[in-house]
Design a protein around this nucleic acid. Sequence first.
DNA 1: CTGTTAGCGCCTTCAG
DNA 2: CTGAAGGCGCTAACAG
Lengths: 353, 353
Amino acid sequence: MPVPKHSRMSDVARRAGVSASTVSRVLRGAPGVAPAVRARVERAAAELSYAVARDASSLVTGATGRVAAIVPFLHPWFFGVALSGLVRRLRTVGLDTLVYEAGTTGELAGFIGELPLRRNVDAVVALALSPDPESVRRLESLGLPVVFCSRTVPGRSSVCVDDRGAAADATRYLLNLGHVRIAYLQSRDDTGFSWSSQDRVSGYLDAMERAGTHPQVVTTGPGSGGGWRATAELLASDPVPTALFAESDDVAMGALGVLRRCRVPVPGAMSVIGFDNQDMAEVMDLTTVAQPVTELGEEAGRMVAALLAGEEAGRQVRLATRLVVRHSAAAPLDTTHRPTRTHQPIAKEPHEP
Amino acid sequence: MPVPKHSRMSDVARRAGVSASTVSRVLRGAPGVAPAVRARVERAAAELSYAVARDASSLVTGATGRVAAIVPFLHPWFFGVALSGLVRRLRTVGLDTLVYEAGTTGELAGFIGELPLRRNVDAVVALALSPDPESVRRLESLGLPVVFCSRTVPGRSSVCVDDRGAAADATRYLLNLGHVRIAYLQSRDDTGFSWSSQDRVSGYLDAMERAGTHPQVVTTGPGSGGGWRATAELLASDPVPTALFAESDDVAMGALGVLRRCRVPVPGAMSVIGFDNQDMAEVMDLTTVAQPVTELGEEAGRMVAALLAGEEAGRQVRLATRLVVRHSAAAPLDTTHRPTRTHQPIAKEPHEP
DNA sequence: CTGTTAGCGCCTTCAG
DNA sequence: CTGAAGGCGCTAACAG
């Protein structure tokens, strides 16, 4: 059953007793139409349930009124929340959002190869896109304004948090609590796609190095399953870390899961810190780094609108994170391995040691 | 900075030494083009990085190549997962997905009032749309093919699980374990929007009634926070239930959270069952009703494609659920309130009692 | 302030 | 099997 024939602009024009141009002007909110005429046209349009065929407008204006959001995956917590901010924000400026899943470099390549975006959207928002130069180059080859969200690319418009600084802060929090053996849990999937910013590990490594302690980065699968397996392995290692810094709350939750199963008291025998502060973190009493994910999406939307309005590109917006202290991390009970405390907690930016 | 001018079909035609019509035929995969010519055109198109301007095609074919997915919210687990299936499936048939957030009846009304969809998409998928007649009518007023996902609407194309049956089964599982005081935890937000199918409660009520036990439905806020608060209140009530059936895993997780905080042993003093089987459920050892959410989205995509291909509408697809037994539910320890067991577990479809 | 005149880029007849 | 002509519905100039 084909879609019923809708009325066109000329139908509205006839009904309002004006020309199509005038209808166009009214519906576009263009100035220079007598209020009375405007009202008449609006009524006619409403009576006919008329809606502008944007495709026809696009043809002449060159703008589609659509932006593409490219995400690596749709199921992790992060993307739903970020998209929510993005979609709502774009809607307020009359832009629609097309969603595409294409996270890995390979998928992205195939995707870009098809060029389904070119000529079909006005801009693209790349969420948590793997920032390898290849992917970035491909994206830009589309010749469209691009906003990177949750990843920084030098010289490109982007909005993100200070992953490095936030991770360093969280690590320092653990160090100052007296922990020495702090493991970092990192996710990767089969394709090699890393599930969160590499800056996060870097921050961890920075802080560990500055403190003169030995880092231990464990790479595992994505999500809570990954956290579970990595932690299970760590529990069987020797020496066992006294604290875990998980790349995301999902991973942290998996860690919490095994720890409970193995009856390892948290934070007694093991401290755990996550990253995200999703709802579940509160309920699980997880100490975590909160990042404003909805706002990340909103800001990306705002940047898209600005770019489309002709404002300068290449702006980098950075949103604040904040360590949410709950009860999954505390001083280690076993102090035998604790270094001599100087009674001077490690400062954020120490002078040369 | 305006988008650089792209090449048009005539450019490709010139370069391939053919007419635009031929290029069109090739790019559309239409039959009746000599293989040699076809190859020549394809090469020319590739060399120019040419991409068809769909808007122009739409203008003449009447099809946009886009479908709208309307979701109430984007952040809950369910929607990311369902959208993932939908988006990927639609992509395989060359359709793009526009995402809109408009869940409540009010929002939907405003949204439909604007008619941003009419003439701009070929079909719409309504995910977990509140199935009140008003919303449904509005949606249909668009005059577009509609597929309902995760909600049933009589006489309309839809794909969902048997919420009622699944909930009844889960409830029966609890009853057969020996529980009598089983509370159902239901979510609602300020707008009155219910976060999951009403059929779920109905199934619970059915099973309880059949067993001759007294139901107790607790309505709370959405997500884990809602589960937390509802459970906290229940713990303060008298008599305290011995089992909780949560509308979703999110809610269940909140329940698990307070229970742990209050040192109520699970499943010793309190059994908990969820609905969804998201990753976290495994890690938290939550017994839950698994529903195939990605498949729900995929099937919706398939149905859209079928409708667009002119196949009959109004088909109702129902996907299977399955109770995943883990360790958050067990027989109640305190047997003083346990009814005399007949040694005949409650059957699925009992004859008239 | 309003109407007229040209296309926007593509697809679909219809000839050849 | 291929090309030429016409028009899809709208907007942007220009007249008036």
